[in-house]
Amino acid sequence: MSILRQGSTLIASVHTALDDSELERFRTDLVAQIGEHRSRGVIIDVAALDVIDSFAALTLRTIAEMARLRGARTVIVGIQPEVAFTMVRLGMGTGSIPTALDLEEGLALLTGGVDDGRRRP
């Protein structure tokens, strides 16, 4: 996995299947960086994952929730169609986390949202 910073947005990419302890480390690292960089947006690219089971889905939701508490919005991009289908049947959607087709779309979604958030009185 890799975590890149682009302005106030963090882009985290998962490159290969992760086991549970690796997912936990991913969550810890990412949440730490969100705090460190005071990020306003997080994109998690999961295009490389061929399975998102209940634990992986829960991890993604936890990251999004922790990011939200630190003032950052999360978008998940690149969920493969058959993975999305399986998640739904398993009963583990992405919850309230917005999803986007790819990185570009994710950034667009986030920029709009982040800009909104920054417009303070």
Binding site: D50, V51, I52, D53, S54, Q80, E82, V83, F85, T86, R89, L90
Partner: peptide
């Protein structure tokens, strides 16, 4: 691919 993903996910659980 869908069936393979469904199977892999169930095995994972």
């Amino acid at each position: 691919r869908t069936d393979l993903t469904v199977l892999a996910t169930a095995v994972s659980e």
